[in-house]
Nucleic acid binder design. Structure first.
Length: 438
RNA sequence: GCCGCGGUAGUAUAGCCUGGACCAGUAUGCGGGCCUGUCAAGCCCGUGACCCGGGUUCAAAUCCCGGCCGCGGCGCCA
């Protein structure tokens, strides 16, 4: 492995000045002035200019430098010195190792790859992601997932790993992908829902999972993927679903507080830091109808929000509370899955909530129904067959604490954090209705 | 699933409505040349494209039909 990333070389610039250093990476740009040739070297951490100059660089090395093409992989050795470059330093090259050269012209220009259309970028993703603005997306995404693990681990949650091959399809109406499994048809998990609940009931009490989920809906939008990563939590012994919202809110507050750690990733995208106020507004669905009415948007009483409604509530949160986040609570029973706990006194409404981030739904959660008979009744009312969920019902026969949880869309959070126009940008290799390669 | 929009060099686009001066323009890349301080380096020369099939017409990148592919809105959801 190479000794130093470019960033580390630059950070130790004073100490390394005048000394021989080696930097390895891709040839980002070539500025050829004849007997003077500048290479901008790029690695995952940054860029650094190398100079090949007649009279300074050995002739043999200089002539090899003249053969180089962009996106070649090279190591340049030479002395580090101050220079009026963007980085403040440059390498005066004395040696050059060519590790790999392109065998054909590049289908995508790396420094400009965000200007290409998304299909082209995704087709040549290994080139696209070489662009620092693009790799920033995945660095941030990884950072968010890391924060999630760190945050909930510190609250005594246990990380779990549930099956992605499952026997039962529908739990929230979303279509599932069938898989041939030893001659039987099974499905790809659309959510860890049942199993994270089982883990709580199994005595783990507080659990979280970071894992893929699969949705077989043929949607054509900029905010849906057929495969994405879900950040799930589930926790026992809650008093109400407010406990769950507190946990979700705490996580987002943590993200906002620690965002300075990844400031430059946001800057790549010109993104504003996440605004999380002292208390994130919590609006019941019925209150949301009224707010939307003030914005001139009518939503049928007892119906779900549409994307326009969500966007308007996002504006409302920003204008009224200076908040990028807003909870919508007490969702109608008719639009929530059977395992959601209903309000005792108003069974048409539930203890289910969504969290909107900058006008897009990024989290869904709520209190779950833990009472066996109520659960059976909910199934019946949803018109679902008890035998299809018998394995799930079993969990509740031997002592299940009141519990609740939430699922958060990692790509959606990343997308909203950076202001991306299409969720596919937040997935290294997105799967949608047509795309299964690369 | 319903609806709308689109497919021009490697990439990104102009041209299409109002068919002919378009053997298709521009930028960038690519190939060649000049240049010892560039930093989106510059300058000169060159290279390379109308998705497929059918139709209308004297004439189709342009109009019509079908196919394939792509994009987006809604539904559904994270």
């Amino acid at each position: 492995m190479k000794d130093l990333l470019i960033r580390e070389v630059l950070a130790r610039g004073q100490e390394l000045e005048g000394k021989e250093v080696e930097a390895c990476g891709w040839v980002h740009r070539i500025r050829d002035l004849g007997a003077l040739r500048f290479l901008v070297l790029r690695d995952k951490s940054g860029t650094l200019q190398a100079v090949f100059k007649r009279g300074e660089t050995p002739q043999e090395v200089l002539s090899r430098a003249l053969e180089l093409r962009e996106e070649s992989v090279v190591c340049v050795k030479g002395s580090l010195r101050r220079a009026p470059t963007r980085e403040g330093y440059e390498i005066s090259a004395r040696d050059l190792r060519l590790l790999s050269a392109p065998v054909e012209p590049l289908p995508l220009e790396v420094p400009d790859s965000p200007k290409a259309t998304l299909p082209t970028r995704l087709k040549y993703r290994w080139l696209d992601v070489r662009n620092p603005k693009v790799s920033a997306i995945f660095k941030l995404k990884g950072w968010i997932a890391g924060k999630f693990r760190e945050h909930f681990s510190s609250l005594q949650f246990t990380e779990i790993f549930t099956p992605k091959i499952v026997a039962t399809g529908t739990e929230s109406g979303a279509d599932v992908f069938p898989v041939l499994y030893f001659g039987k048809t099974v499905y790809l998990a659309q959510s860890p829902q049942f199993y994270k609940q089982m883990a709580v009931i199994a005595g783990l009490e507080r659990v979280f999972e970071v894992g893929p989920v699969f949705r077989a809906e043929p949607h054509h939008t900029v905010r849906h993927l057929n495969e994405y990563h879900s950040l799930d939590i589930e926790v026992g012994f809650i008093e109400s679903y407010n406990d769950v919202m507190d946990l979700v809110e705490g996580f987002f507050r943590r993200l906002a507080q620690d965002l300075h750690e990844v400031r430059e990733l946001l800057e790549e995208h010109g993104a504003e830091p996440l605004q999380v106020p002292e208390r994130v507004p919590r609006l019941t669905m019925r209150q949301a109808y009224e707010v939307l009415a003030e914005y001139g948007k009518r939503v049928q009483y007892g119906e779900d929000l549409d994307p326009e409604g969500e966007r308007l509530l996002g504006s409302y949160a920003r204008e009224r509370y200076k908040s990028d986040l807003i909870f919508v609570t007490e969702y109608p029973w008719k639009v929530r899955p059977f395992y959601t706990m209903r309000k005792e006194e108003e069974p048409a409404w539930t203890y289910g909530f969504d969290l909107l981030m900058r006008g897009l739904e990024v989290v869904t959660g709520g209190q779950r129904e833990h009472r066996y008979e109520r659960l059976r009744q909910n199934l019946r009312e949803k018109g679902l067959r008890e035998e299809d969920f018998s394995f799930y019902l079993e969990f509740f026969k031997h002592g299940a604490p009141p519990h609740g949880g939430a699922g958060m869309g990692l790509e959606r959070i990343t997308m909203q954090m950076l202001g991306l126009q299409n969720i596919r940008e937040a997935r290294l290799l997105p799967r949608d209705t047509e795309r299964v390669t690369p």
